[in-house]
Computed example of a mutant assay.
Amino acid sequence: MNAVKDASSDLSVKAACEALGVPRSSFYRHRWGRRFTHPRRWPRPTRRALTDPERQEVLDVLHSEPYVDKPPAQVWAAVLDHEERLLCSMSTMYRILAANGEVRERRNQLQHPRYVKPVLEATGPKQIWSWDITKLRGPEKRVFFSLYVILDIFSRCVVGWLISERECAELAEQLFRETCEKEGVEPGEVTAHSDRGPPMTAKTTTQLLADLGLTQSFSRPRVSNDNAYSESQFKTLKYRPEFPGRFGSLADARAFCRRFFEWYNREHYHSSLGLLTPWSVHSGEFEQVLQKRQEVLNRAYAAHPERFVRGRPTVKRPPTRVWINEPQAVEISK
């Protein structure tokens, strides 16, 4: 600051501060000090304020058994009606509670149970099945068909589906029994994951899955990401260009779904599988497909290597592990 003061004798304060890189406000503050400081003013006491005994009385009423779990507005109205007296305003009640660090939820409310986040991982087919139910519009308003779909999350292959006019646990039992028989599932081999819809949580469904040797897993309420595989597959179904706004009959809906799932499993190149079909990954035939693709890429590279600026191309392989809520690695301290 002294350098600025010395330079300001020949230059203006602005030029001296700019030359030395010093803010003018800092120079003036150092030169003149805080000339306009005021002592801190505390709020004056007013005759309208409650006395200490009155404030304690309000706090005692708020802590009393009839009002301990009620908000100040409810306490104010109840005291006014039943005790026929006015302690203070509702705002004053809040101020007294705030002064004592008690401004929080006071009501006695039902607490929803905490659901555990499902953490599942599959390293091959027939390990985790995701299943769900979606509605298809029928021929008239308020007429819907229920489509049950079981999806293998590793291969994205639809291993079982069923469509009916109603949604019930008995149909889910039928679907799982037929799918397990077709896939040759051994007890304890597959985990069936779903949301918490009535057919999924029905006692009969739970008992059937236990009889078939399937482990049951559920999503958390209102968390669609816990069952993202089924939700994504339903979007693929309903965003197909040939998907109708309404189905004329149950037979019409079944015929459409039969064509769709045949296309989805055997012809649809899935982006999450390295552009392989779900059936090729589910059946293990994808190795031959990848070998043929690599041969084509090798011939293309040999013919025009200058076109591949990143070197020899390689085929993209499907993931070796998939999950519902990725498991976190546990570090073991030494």
Rank of each mutant, 00 (worst) to 15 (best):
E295K: 15
E242L: 11
F247D: 02
G274T: 06
T320F: 08
S146C: 05
Y94A: 00
R44C: 09
K182I: 00
L171R: 11
Q294F: 04
A16H: 08
L209W: 10
S224M: 11
T206G: 07
E173F: 01
V190C: 15
F261R: 00
L209C: 08
T92P: 12
Y28V: 02
D252Y: 04
A251Y: 01
I96S: 09
L87I: 08
V281H: 07
V158G: 13
T134L: 10
A251M: 05
G245L: 01
G101A: 09
K135P: 01
P221F: 04
S249C: 04
L175F: 01
S219G: 15
K182A: 10
F36K: 04
D211S: 12
F243I: 00
C17V: 11
G160Y: 06
R222F: 02
H268E: 11
P305D: 09
R246S: 04
L151A: 10
F308L: 08
L86P: 02
Y229F: 12
R40K: 09
I150P: 07
V281N: 07
D69H: 13
E167K: 02
S333N: 14
A7W: 07
F145A: 00
D52Q: 05
F247W: 03
Q216A: 09
D226F: 04
V103P: 07
S280W: 02
L50E: 06
V119P: 10
E331L: 12
M93D: 05
G245P: 06
V116N: 12
D211G: 06
K117N: 09
V119R: 14
R312M: 15
